[in-house]
């Protein structure tokens, strides 16, 4: 009986002692937490993807509450998230620029094959076999390595080539890293004009192996009122600082390669052509 009593008493006292110690120390060592940071981190998506450049959502929340980061820093959360955070911080949110990924190739089924590839359905694996099954050493292989890394279901393979659906894209950049051909890039604005080809092959040769690749004909460079397009190494390049997204180049490209991410220009051209017919 005394054994039970002494056990209960000793352990009870020990527990009480440690409990008191913790209670007292939580008062002594209490840290003032920034309430703003807590409320901001509630608004953030909590994916801890790191696309903002901070180690995780809570770090970004702390940075925003201290004014070290913009309220629209979270790419994943988008405008809605930026507005909520702006409310908490008491500033006006400038709509976060919608950054999206863009695949610079339209080849796919229109590009000639070197051989029939029967191996693992993965771009990285395919690109290791004799430089890939495509004649074009720059083009999209279409096995969907980018599709499998995308957590937002924003990339699909259509007609043998990867296409980013801008409305789903959160610009996390995973596809950019995954693509063995390095033809996916992030662009600041869906209105930005892109040349949808990455091939530096000479036009004479490229014409034989791809029905759509950039031939380096320089019609777009001549059409551009601001001199934003140059032909470098057989491929048209756009100087983002000079480009005003006027769409002059879009209309002259004989291969219909140039467009913006939402493809609004190509829609226009299509409707114009249909109208003329």
């Amino acid at each position: 009986m005394t054994g039970i009593l002494s056990a209960i008493l000793t352990l009870g006292l020990l527990g009480l002692l440690f409990g008191l110690l913790l209670a007292v120390s939580s008062k002594i060592f209490s840290v003032e937490r920034d309430e703003k940071a807590d409320r901001i981190s509630e608004c953030l998506p909590g994916a801890n993807c790191g696309a903002c450049g901070f180690a995780g959502c809570s770090n970004l929340a702390a940075a925003i509450s201290e004014g070290k980061a913009e309220v629209n820093s979270c790419r994943v959360g988008g405008t809605e998230c930026a507005e909520k955070i702006a409310d908490i911080m008491g500033v006006k949110a400038e709509a976060a620029a919608k950054i999206t990924a863009y695949v610079k190739c339209r080849g796919g089924d229109r590009a000639k094959r070197k051989f029939n590839y029967d191996g693992i359905r993965d771009c990285v694996a395919a690109s290791k076999v004799a430089g890939g099954p495509l004649e074009c050493s720059y083009g999209c292989l279409g096995f969907g390595t980018c599709v499998s890394v995308c957590e937002y279901n924003a990339i699909r393979i259509e007609k043998g080539v990867a296409i980013v659906h801008a409305e789903n894209c959160k610009a996390c950049g995973k596809c950019v890293k995954a693509c063995p051909r390095h033809i996916i890039s992030l662009q600041k604005d869906p209105k930005d004009i892109n040349i949808s080809c990455s091939s530096h092959l000479k036009g004479i040769y490229l014409r034989k192996i791809c029905d759509i690749g950039c031939l380096g004909c320089s019609l777009c460079a001549k059409a551009c009122p601001n001199g934003a397009i140059t032909i470098e190494d057989n491929l048209a390049q756009i100087d983002r600082e000079k480009c005003v997204s006027c769409g002059a180049c879009v209309k002259v490209c004989p291969r219909h390669l140039i467009s913006d991410a939402s493809e609004s220009f190509s829609e226009e051209i299509k409707s114009e052509k249909e109208g003329s017919i």
Binding site: G3, S6, T10, L11, G15
Partner: peptide, 14 residues
């Protein structure tokens, strides 16, 4: 206090 048998419980607490 001769409480060797309560060691595990006490250590978890500590």
């Amino acid at each position: 206090f001769d409480l060797g048998y309560m060691r595990t419980v006490a250590f978890i607490l500590i």
